[in-house]
Design a protein around this nucleic acid. Structure first.
Length: 558
RNA sequence: GUGUCAAUAGCUCAGCUGGAUAGAGCAUCGCCCUUCUAAGGCGAGGGUCGGGGGUUCGAAUCCCUCUUGACACACCA
């Protein structure tokens, strides 16, 4: 529902083309709801904007329209909507736009954790961004394939297993899980720093993994199993579920195939011993597919992966979510696919986001436990429990609410700024529960629910609603905001940025909080109460739908 | 060095496909719980939109330039 349409309907009376595009929202309601700046018309019409605005304002007939007043002020034509009529129309007819399935497949590669290492703050942003985009695509009828392209391959596994053999045991891994793996990894990394023998040992063990060595390979499988279980546990808490966990190891043996494939396309050359695709014509460094020592690289496996995914899913879009530092790399990968004339090459898209960093520097899994995801979850969950226990308002399921609030805070923190911006992560500030935050949004929803519950006893079925109370500024502002939902969803999808939707939700929540404090919903005559309750129901519907798209759950009370 | 992105209130950020007096939240200082949940609401202070040019009737928004910062730039992922 686009309320500007009411203005467009009236503008049809004028002989000028493309006036609709000029219509914008008024700066404040003393200037109407929408306005038409006439400055750009001045040139073509050879008249002053003030005169044009005057003429337009005078010539338009607003009988039989939803415009109640038109005035000309300083070159602007201001349009005042008939708030009562429009509100009635909206409250009786508003539906969240349903999109039919469009048979298009979007693969989203996100999360992409390295198994056997802790998930950290950076993954949080990646996961929620990916999940939110997935939900947005689903909203518009796409079939989404969620791919967790896990790092389950490479010398780090040689190191972990070396560590286990030196200090640990199978039982220990069974018992302590990821903590044990992380500990041996860190310990081994420190030990090998100036020990050539240990470095060689790790490489040897990795080779044994590749060769499916009788002793080593089962340990590797165990390591993967334990790590995957932990990752699934955490992702489950966050409310994220993947369709594919196909990791790098699945493409480990594709080196020859990839090299042959690119060679047939005539793209390969050898430089400094390495096999490369020369991209100098495109002002890019070479794309290396085979190291000078003959080994494969991430890039090799990515070529294999994208082809494999296309064969399996026939995607219409393939989205890669990573931090911004991989921008050039993906530009190279996509260019190589284009040069290889792959039919899907135009449908690959890299969605980058700014870096998360700690106040004291870079995040690294080798540098101790700060900003590790489990700790963050614990921290927020405990804080939520504490806040709940200190409240005067008692609720039925404090544990459940605490969990939903905690998840909301984590998601909010990942999605609330423009995805391209770098964020310095400050735990106290980021996980605040006051002001414009996820708890604030959830709280708004509970207040609506609370009023709606209370209203049930009023028995308003036979009462006819009186929409004149929607003339009130806050009320009509809410009507407008709710009507913008679909445009906001479209924008968030197009820009691949859920923060746009999140901002809009906050705007709705702010106005809702203002509304019910300034105007008591269950006071006054029944006809007006009915209209006000319809408004609350509208807001509820819009918030519930929007929250889901940004991975924030609603709660009934808190 | 080259390229990409960024710079808006003390702090964190909106606004950026040009439009009327630049907005929030946090922090600071006031006020509001006998009235639908105070995780709330109301109010106050706080700005040469990094500097300088340009385009335009009009620029935080577009272009150029400079400064500062982050990131990337051949065998890591």
């Amino acid at each position: 529902m686009d309320l500007k349409q009411n203005v467009y309907d009236v503008l049809k009376q004028l002989p000028y083309q493309n006036l609709n595009e000029l219509v914008i929202e008024s700066v404040d309601d003393s200037k109407g709801d929408y306005c038409l700046p006439c400055f750009s018309l001045a040139k073509t019409l050879h008249k002053s904007p003030i005169l044009i605005a005057d003429e337009i304002a005078n010539s338009l007939d607003i009988n039989n329209s939803n415009i109640v007043k038109i005035e000309s002020v300083a070159g602007y034509v201001n349009f005042f909507l008939n708030k009562t009529i429009i509100s009635k129309n909206v409250l009786n007819n508003f539906e969240i736009e349903k999109y039919n399935k469009n048979n298009k497949v979007v693969c989203i590669d996100y999360c992409s954790i390295n198994l056997a290492k802790y998930m950290h703050i950076g993954h949080l942003k990646n996961c929620f961004l990916g999940e939110s985009l997935a939900r947005l695509f689903e909203n518009f009828g796409y079939k989404v394939v969620r791919i967790n392209y896990v790092g389950d391959y490479g010398t780090p596994y040689g190191k972990i297993i070396a560590g286990i053999k030196m200090w640990g045991s199978k039982e220990d891994i069974e018992k302590r899980g990821i903590d044990a793996l992380q500990e041996y990894y860190v310990k081994f990394c420190m030990a090998e720093a100036d020990d050539k023998d240990l470095q060689q040992l790790a490489r040897d063990i990795f080779k044994k993994i590749e060769d499916k060595d009788e002793e080593i390979y089962p340990i590797y499988k165990k390591v993967i199993e334990v790590s995957k279980k932990e990752a699934e546990r955490l992702l489950n808490i966050l409310g994220i579920k993947f369709d594919s966990w196909k990791g790098e190891s699945s493409y480990a043996n594709e080196l020859d195939n990839v090299v042959n494939f690119l060679d047939k396309k005539g793209l390969l050359s050898v430089s400094e011993g390495a096999t490369i695709v020369d991209l100098s014509k495109f002002d890019m460094p070479p794309f290396i597919v085979k190291r000078s020592d003959g080994a494969s690289l991430y890039a090799t496996r990515d070529v294999a992966a994208v082809i494999d995914r296309y064969n399996e899913y026939h995607f219409d879009k393939m989205l890669y979510l990573t931090a911004v530092e991989q921008k050039l790399y993906f530009a190279q990968l996509f260019k190589v696919m284009e040069l290889a004339n792959m039919e899907f090459s135009g449908n690959l898209e890299h969605i980058s986001y700014g870096r998360f960093s700690l106040p004291n520097g870079k995040i690294s899994s080798r540098r101790g436990k700060q900003a590790v995801l489990v700790d963050l979850i614990d921290y927020v969950l405990n804080k939520a429990k504490e806040v709940i226990s200190n409240r005067t308002f008692t609720i039925e399921n404090p544990e459940d609410v605490a969990m939903k609030v905690a998840k909301g805070v984590l998601s909010f923190n990942s999605l609330n700024v423009d995805r391209n911006k770098d964020v310095v992560f400050d735990i106290e500030r980021s996980f605040s529960f006051d002001g414009e935050t996820a708890p604030y949004m959830q709280y708004t929803y509970t207040r609506i629910m609370s009023i709606l519950r209370k209203a049930e006893s009023l028995n308003l079925n036979k009462v006819e609603a009186d929409y004149s109370c929607m003339e009130q500024t806050n009320a009509f502002e809410l009507i407008k905001l709710c009507c913008e939902l679909n445009n906001i969803l479209i924008l968030a999808l197009e820009k691949r940025d859920p923060s746009i939707l999140l901002k809009h939700c906050i705007e709705i929540c702010k106005n809702t909080n203002k509304y019910y404090t300034a105007c008591k919903i269950l006071d006054g005559n029944l006809s007006q109460i009915k209209a006000k309750l319809e408004l609350l129901n509208l807001i509820k519907k819009v918030l519930k739908h929007s929250f889901n798209c940004i991975c924030i759950e609603t709660v009934e009370e808190m």
